[in-house]
């Protein structure tokens, strides 16, 4: 093997090693956030988001290690699947958490949804028909 190729190899190896370690650190960040944040909604930030970057780095490291072009589409598909699913599940859990009052009011500096919810609940009580009370298909 000529020395130039091995230098390139070394660089690729180093870059992917850094990617792997940083990607693993993102998982650790998620766990630390899970343990240290005070309420469900802020825990959710820590739990779901660093994974996006973490998985990106890990998949990029795989792509670098394999050194063939045809793995990249497969890796991209795996990442896009995660991009599509993570916000949806985070939103569902967050919405359920907000509706079941799993948040601490004293940790919120402002809550612009609260007034809307109060108003909707008020009109739901006034209005006997359920359909009109729910503003515009929020409950699908």
């Amino acid at each position: 093997m000529n020395p130039e190729a091995s230098v390139v190899d070394n660089v690729i190896d180093t870059v992917s090693a850094v990617f792997l370690v940083v990607g693993a650190l993102m998982s650790l960040a998620a766990a630390v956030g899970l343990l240290r944040f005070p309420d469900l909604l802020s825990r959710m930030h820590a739990a779901t988001k660093p994974q996006v970057l973490g998985l990106f780095l890990l998949l990029a490291a795989i792509g670098l290690q394999m050194r063939t072009w045809w793995v990249w589409p497969a890796l991209l598909v795996a990442w896009i699947f995660q991009l599509l699913t993570v916000p949806v599940s985070a939103h569902m859990v967050g919405r359920a958490g907000y509706r079941t009052k799993h948040l601490h009011r004293e940790l919120l500096s402002s809550d612009e949804l609260d007034a809307v919810v109060q108003k909707a609940a008020q009109s739901a009580r006034d209005d006997s028909s359920r359909d009109e009370a729910d503003d515009g298909g929020r409950r699908d």
């Binding site: 490291a61 290690q65 799993h102």
Partner: peptide, 29 residues
């Protein structure tokens, strides 16, 4: 404290498993 916290945490555990799978793939090519 709540069911949702547990769901969230098990989601993270699953993601950590996924990360482990990724690292295995990258290291063993």
């Amino acid at each position: 404290p709540s069911l949702l916290d547990r769901v969230l945490a098990s989601d993270v555990l699953l993601a950590i498993l996924g990360a482990a799978l990724c690292i295995d793939m990258a290291v063993n090519r």
